[in-house]
Amino acid sequence: MLEGFNFRIIWEYMPLYMQCFAATLWLSGLSLFGAVVVGIIACAMRLSQSRILRSIAGVYIETIRSTPLLAQLYFFYFGLPSMGIMLPEWLTGVIALTLNSGAYYAEIIRAGIQAIDFGQIEAGIASGLSYIQRMRFIILPQALGNTIRPMLGQAIILVKDSSLLSLISIMELTRAGQVLTSERFTPAEGFLTTAAFYLIIYYMLKAFSGWSEKRLIFREAH
């Protein structure tokens, strides 16, 4: 089966793949960071006292979760320019991925927060800690610890979703496979190599989560 498999072509295109691998890494990394920040903010809004903040966050989360990422991406890519907002493609892609995963992170973090016993929050209130301080020192460290696994799951989804950025002609791993396929008519080589690189990222994320989980579990000493 592998007889017709052309390793030489893969080798030849390796510089392109490495460049696109790096692009997928930083595009996903940036979006991941943005998504966690957006997730924390949206979650804080959703759990806040203010009805207005709660509904804004609710609408955001519901909208994102009930519409396809591709539609959201096209909205930013075609929609924003038609409204006079011009952004570079990579930024459009990062914004779409950030806002998309941010909604999921908001829900993941909320589940982690709601698993925390309310008594601890009362203890924080009783000792005079402000809402922000309770979030920062009591709730988030535990919520992030409780939710390493689902957070990692969402990070993996985000990396895979970043392949959609190939559709708005950003050079990243999937796009590299498309280039090789269209220039040399070798889809098997092209997309298998692409897949192999995604696998590398997957194992990197998994190793990171295993490491951080061990540290957090040690800290909680359960």
Partner: peptide, 20 residues
């Protein structure tokens, strides 16, 4: 309330320590 709360220690039935 912050100032008043800082002056008052409160001990709960269920301890409510921060586990982390």
């Amino acid at each position: 309330m912050t100032k008043i709360r800082a002056e008052i220690g409160f001990v709960f039935q269920s301890f409510n320590l921060y586990p982390h």
